[in-house]
Design a binder for these strands. Structure first.
Lengths: 211, 211
DNA sequence: GGAGAATACATGACCGGTCGTCTAGCTTCT
DNA sequence: AGAAGCTAGACGACCGGTCATGTATTCTCC
């Protein structure tokens, strides 16, 4: 029902979440310790298990919150008032910018948190795998919608399978982000646009963005 | 079971290497312990540091050996006696088959060992990162050569940048392998061919493979 | 408005176990 | 005897997780 706010209030939970997000992006899951997270958050280790059931439960929460934020960003870009291809283009720009900013702040390209965890934990933690599957599925769906719109407007080739093309674009993003992280070079991402034009079989006369 | 010989009388090193390869593919690096490797190899833990300087040194050896084997396979396929596009097509088939076999044997799609380790360790172990950078560079170079040949024969579009296209193909492989691992479904890989035709701007009349 | 009661959080010591690593010493062969 | 190949066992550090106990804040009831 309704629970009264009795006792203290603390921002320790949020501090843990924020620290965990950064550390998981930078160091992964297995190589990361609860003590390290707490130290970075400025929260005593004893408090950790008051706010989270387990290390894995924390990871799931971090994943959910990060996806909520990223989905909002993707939706804002992909539902903006512009041509479908333009919106797709903007998504790639945002993606590259995110990595560039992260690199300037921490010195390293952190890559895609979901991709990182997918490779690290798919075969280790079924719950995390399920969550990541749902996230990638949602990403594909968001892009699929834009591809379909592009097809309807003749911006993309009529032979294109929207869903499969969306999958390919997501795969291309993940693959390029992997290279960007390995080379610590965000510029690995700036071919995403050109490749997508090919994958979507965009005719030559539609390849110059006007809007 | 006597080995009355000078020099190496044990195959323990090889057993460790083989077990480590399988386990690293399945469980990654950080989540994997030396004891677990030795147990799987049937080698006493105390022997480990007689054969390897450290866990990381083992990982580097596993990486090198795995790449030596994979490079040989790639070269065999990519230098075969067939058209450039056909050879590229065969590489994708081999790639999918490898994952399919691994899945049938172990129950899970293990993905690409280099990609897995790249995301897990790029920002943790500089030596491993360097090795992986060299490997991906070599992969790109192998594919670039084939793309160049395809261009010369008019199989690929003249506007294609060979090196950049090769990078995109490798990225597409890694991205699709990620999805295949996450979904435990090797069939995620069978769009590689179609996508490459787009990325290489192959004209319609060259898309049917004869040889 | 003052006194408990109840709740929300803080804290550090501590648990059993595992981590990567090392060394002293055992075998086995020359 | 000496050397080389190999290994049991232990090392200290750290792992994720627990818990008893303490303090701060807001509730209820007088």
């Amino acid at each position: 029902m309704y629970s009264p706010r009795v006792g203290r209030t603390s921002d320790a939970r949020n501090k843990i979440l924020e620290a965990a997000k950064v550390l998981i992006e930078q160091r992964g899951y297995s190589a990361l310790g609860v003590a390290e997270i707490c130290a970075a958050a400025g929260v005593p280790k004893g408090s950790f298990y008051y706010f989270f059931e387990s290390k894995q439960a924390l990871a799931l929460t971090v994943i959910d919150e990060h996806w909520a934020a990223q989905r909002a960003e993707w939706e804002a870009v992909l539902n903006a008032d512009a041509s479908p291809l333009r919106r797709l283009h903007d998504l790639f720009e945002v993606t590259e910018e995110v990595q560039r900013v992260a690199q300037q702040r921490s010195g390293v390209v952190v890559g895609c948190m979901f991709g990182n965890l997918a490779l690290e934990l798919s075969n280790q933690a079924p719950e995390i795998r399920e969550r990541l599957q749902a996230i990638f599925d949602a990403q594909i769906e968001l892009i699929e919608a834009v591809v379909t719109q592009a097809k309807d407007l003749g911006e993309a080739g009529p032979a294109v399978d929207s869903r499969e093309a969306a999958r390919s674009i997501v795969a291309q993003i993940e693959g390029r982000v992997l290279l960007a992280k390995l080379l610590n070079d965000p510029e690995q991402l700036d071919t995403l646009w050109r490749n997508s034009l090919d994958l979507l079989q965009v005719p030559d006369d539609s390849r110059t963005l006007v809007n």
